[in-house]
Design a protein around this nucleic acid. Structure first.
Lengths: 127, 127
DNA sequence: ACCGGACATCGACCGAGGTGAATATTCACC
DNA sequence: GGTGAATATTCACCTCGGTCGATGTCCGGT
């Protein structure tokens, strides 16, 4: 349980990969999250859900936005949900998704590069 | 030239995808950058280059860190370079790569979620 | 209880991409 | 100028993943 796929919290808090080398294990842990976002449809889904009224959207809302089959949309939602990017809540017949800001934030923190990436530059305010 | 693949500046400055829906064209522009990072080897390469002495590393430095063939490393470097993540400078026989902090920063800004992602929340301080 | 609608799962197809062997290219050195 | 080393390119293989059709499951309404 602790090994297989801890998706979201992988890119924990303050470990910008510009600070120190990422070991193979850490890389493998973060990649699923980036993979989940590295798709035009999924990226738009995340954006649509986040910007949707109430910060949530059901599958039917998303189906209208794409020229894709319903199973495909559902597949992308599953990927994003598994990666910890989207939260899923079923209310009646409809399934509502909303963005986990913390997950996106952790990825952002991982990539956030301090201005001077040089050698002896100290990484500011991260603790 | 303006259409094909403007890789780096795609995820420009302040357009967190949690603010407003990302149109298909913008998504297609950003995705190559995320795709470039969504690989364990490439993620480690970026990290190794950034954390390497002087903020730069040559191919030979990276070859030691992975159990991969030289063409494969070179391929990953090409992907990262094409995506605008790495800068390439050839000095003599060696090719030195260094991280483009601005590129990583733009991705981070894209994913950086303001605390309240709700409906009428205004996206703070980004201009 | 039956039926229809919303969403998920399954199976299959197919293009995209990571990988390595062989080869090309470019440069430093003698 | 020839030789060897460092890196890039080409080609082919094979796995991964996005897509869709068919089907399953669950819920609400009649």
């Amino acid at each position: 349980m602790s090994i297989s796929t801890p998706p979201a919290e992988a890119a924990a808090c303050c470990a910008p990969l510009t600070a120190q080398p990422l070991d193979a294990d850490a890389a493998e842990a973060v990649v699923p999250l980036l993979k989940a976002l590295a798709d035009p449809v999924r990226l738009r889904i995340v954006s649509l859900v986040a910007a949707h009224e109430g910060g949530e959207a059901c599958v039917c809302d998303l189906q209208e936005a794409f020229e894709l089959s319903q199973p495909t949309i559902s597949h992308h939602l599953k990927v994003l949900h598994t990666a910890g990017v989207l939260d899923r809540e079923k209310r009646g017949t409809w399934a509502y998704y909303r963005v986990r800001a913390e997950t996106l934030g952790s990825v952002a923190a991982l990539l956030a590069a301090p201005a001077g990436v040089g050698t002896s530059e100290r990484t500011p305010g991260c603790d």
